[in-house]
Amino acid sequence: MSLSDDFAFTQGSLGDYADCARRFELRFIKRLRYPALEVQDALQFETRTRQGARFHKMVQQHLLGVPAEALAESLADDEELARWWANYRARGLTDLPAQRLSEITLQTHLAGRRLVAKYDLLALAPGGAAVIVDWKTGARVPSQSSLRGRMQTIVYRYVLAQAGAHLYADERIPPERIRMDYVYVASDGERLSFAYSAAQMRQDEALLAEMIAAIDQADQFALTNELRRCRFCSYRSLCDRGGAGRLEDFDIDEYEDEEEETFALDFDQIAEIEF
């Protein structure tokens, strides 16, 4: 069994591969859905991820014209989310170019494969700055150096440089104009920014191409040797790698449910059973 020809790589799938080749194989080649718990405190974990998803949705609604006050009114039952919202309102959009596109997906190709990035927000000034904004709702702000090496930082900047021309007056966006901002709304809207450069882009391209080629050529996908990577992996029972980890140790911002392509839940499809 190998990766399907039309598979699209994302920061999530590449991150999985970087963590553990076996996990990549199980999830994306064998497409094994495994409902084991990621963390012991499953309900609290779920609450946090749902809050995060709701926050992202609210920003999108706001950017599409729903008044911030109307959105704020819906938060009477959730103090934490209200605090995040206040931080977003106070600092989330500061110093960003005026053209703002939320929840947009771009794709490019590399090593014969598609490479896809789904952005929370792109703020662009054609001829000027091109800022990628990623909202983070986790309580912990990681170090600048760990974020710099994160697959998301690598993939998002690269894909924008390669595939953003049509959003930028039909001109390839010079890497030097690209910046990626992580905004930690649970930590007073703290912002960690990463500039980009042509040299960095070449380096990232080489790394990504190498990873993709390695995956395409692999006939064996080894289990990781670093047991800590198994703590929050749902395949633990399959690999015999112990029980679920503790939520306190988990970085919620690393957890993203990725859809490859947007195709919302389709009630018509369900109604098909009427025949």
Binding site: Q107, R114, A163, A264, L265, D268, Q269
Partner: peptide
């Protein structure tokens, strides 16, 4: 999906069900 040479955004595919769901949810308030 077979377009490995395309650089850019993504085409949307919708039914009346999926599109109305997305829009009602977005503009709910």
């Amino acid at each position: 999906r077979g377009l490995t040479s395309h650089r850019g955004g993504q085409v949307s595919v919708h039914t009346i069900g999926s599109l109305s769901l997305q829009l009602v949810e977005t503009f709910w308030f």
